[in-house]
Every structure is written in C-alpha cells, then in structure tokens.
C-alpha cells in the first residue's frame, strides 16, 4: 500500500523527468526532421566548403589532442606526484581555461601570439613567421581551450594509481622511466583515454577562441562550428548547410560517446 502523498510525489517526479527528457530530445529530433525535409543534406555535405571544414576540424582537433597528450602528461604527473612550491596554484590555474569564456581565451592568445602580441611581435621580427589567421592558430586555440580537460582527467588518473606500486617497482630494480611506462601509465590508462576523448570533443566544438585568434577563412581556419556560423550569416550554404553540418557534429558526438562507454566498460572488466 502506497501512501497517497508518496503517490503524488512519484507522479510529480515522473512528470518533471519527462519534461526534462523532452527538452533534451526535441532539438535533436528537430535537426533530423529538418535535414530530411530539406532533402539536400547529402549533396551539401559533398560541397568543397563543407568537406574542407570537416577535414580541417578533424585534423586540427586530433593534432591538438596529441599535443595535449605530449605536453600535458608530464604536467599532470607532476601535479599528481610532485611536491613543488606553487603546486596548489598551478593545479587551480589548470581549470582556468575550462571556466573562462572561450572568446576571452581568443583575445588572450591574440595579445600573446598576435602580430603585435607579447611574443608574436619579436618572433615575427626575427623570423617573419606569424601565428594568427592560419591553421596553426586553429590548433593553438583548440589546445588552449581543450587541453585542460585532458590534464584534469590525467591528473585524477595518476592520483588514483597507488604510489606503493611505483615504490615496489623501484625496489624490483625498475628505473623511474620504466616504472612510469610499465606501471603508472597502464594503471592510469582508462583516465588518459577518457581525457583524450574529452579533449578531442572539446576541440571539435571550439568556436570562440578560434574565431578571434584564427579568424574564419574558408579552407584555412574555418572549422565546422565556424562554417555553421558562416552559413547563418549568409554564406552559400544557407540554413540547410548549417543543418547538415550540425548533423555531422551530432553523429560524431554520438560515436564518441558510444566508443567512450564501450572503452570504459572494457577497462572496468579487465
């Protein structure tokens, strides 16, 4: 026997949950509905602009993720294991780009690496190289905004590795390098993979910092999210183009989520 008050509460909870679920599902349903109604999605996807945006986004995000791994892993390990002055501050600062609006990150990049930026200006004076408004800038913007997701995840992963395992490896004659490669990284592997996936997804979706630091140049700096913006602002793609691009990003996101879940489950089993 259920108490009437509980029955009412259960009904309310169910209703709220249903409203919430609808709110989340309807936009995607709308997107798919529109793509079918337009009927030109498939041909739009094969236009040069979309193809270039897709290729650029994919490679830039992948490169940014690799760089995040190469540059971020040592830092994450130091944050997890090291004892150095300012560690707590460094740990807090990692989250800054996560909290900061990406447009601010873009402006900050510009002031540092732009043609008149802090290091951008001397570098151009010496070498003639400029960072801004080229593909390099896309990767840099994505790296700044997305890498903290990797570092954060990797640090938690290293935190969770029992230091005693490393100590025992030392007593078994393993050098610190060998211990890191054979014990620490494999132990933290699921977290490192999760961090990479998060980083890659965030890089794929990067808009604000890229727009300000790299600009919106077709074929050079125009990633998928930028192409969506352009489509709205009257590029040849139009609204159907925006829908088509959004659909691709949606599918990519779903694939990443599914792969992520699968990897996490396999990781838990082994």
């Amino acid at each position: 026997m259920r108490v009437p008050a509980d029955r009412a509460a259960l009904a309310t909870v169910t209703l709220l949950a249903a409203v919430f679920a609808l709110f989340f599902l309807l936009p995607f349903a709308g997107l798919i509905d529109r793509a079918i109604a337009d009927g030109e999605t498939w041909s739009l996807l094969r236009t040069r602009q979309v193809r270039e945006a897709l290729v650029l986004s994919f490679w830039a995000a992948t490169l940014a993720s690799v760089l995040a791994g190469v540059l971020g892993t040592p830092g994450a390990y130091l944050l997890a294991r090291g004892h150095f002055p300012g560690r707590a501050i460094a740990d807090a600062l990692i989250d800054l780009p996560i909290v900061l609006p990406p447009t601010v990150a873009g402006v900050a990049l510009l002031t540092a690496f732009g043609r008149r930026g802090l290091v951008g200006e001397p570098i151009e004076a010496w070498t003639g190289f400029t960072f801004g408004f080229r593909t390099t800038a896309v990767v840099m913007a994505q790296l700044l905004v997305a890498a903290p997701f990797y570092v954060r995840a990797a640090k938690s992963g290293f935190d969770a590795v029992d230091p005693q395992l490393e100590r025992v490896a030392y007593t078994l004659g393993a050098s610190r390098v060998r211990t890191f490669a054979r014990i620490t990284v494999p132990q933290a592997w699921p977290a490192l993979v999760a961090g990479t996936v998060l980083c890659w997804s965030r890089a794929m979706g990067e808009l604000g910092a890229t727009l300000i630091f790299a600009g919106n140049l077709e074929g050079r700096t125009q990633t998928m999210p930028l192409a969506v913006i352009s489509a709205f602002e009257g590029s040849s793609l139009g609204l159907p183009g925006a829908v088509a691009l959004s659909l691709i990003l949606l599918v990519a996101a779903l694939v990443v989520l599914a792969a992520f879940r699968l990897a996490a489950r396999n990781g838990a089993r082994s």
Binding site: D162, Q164, L165, V168, A169, I183, Q187
Partner: peptide, 10 residues
Amino acid sequence: VQELALFDHL
C-alpha cells in the same frame, strides 16, 4: 610490502 602492491594490469 604489507599491501602486496601486485601489478593488476600484468
């Protein structure tokens, strides 16, 4: 060591 610290991934 007391906790054994076996390498579970190996």
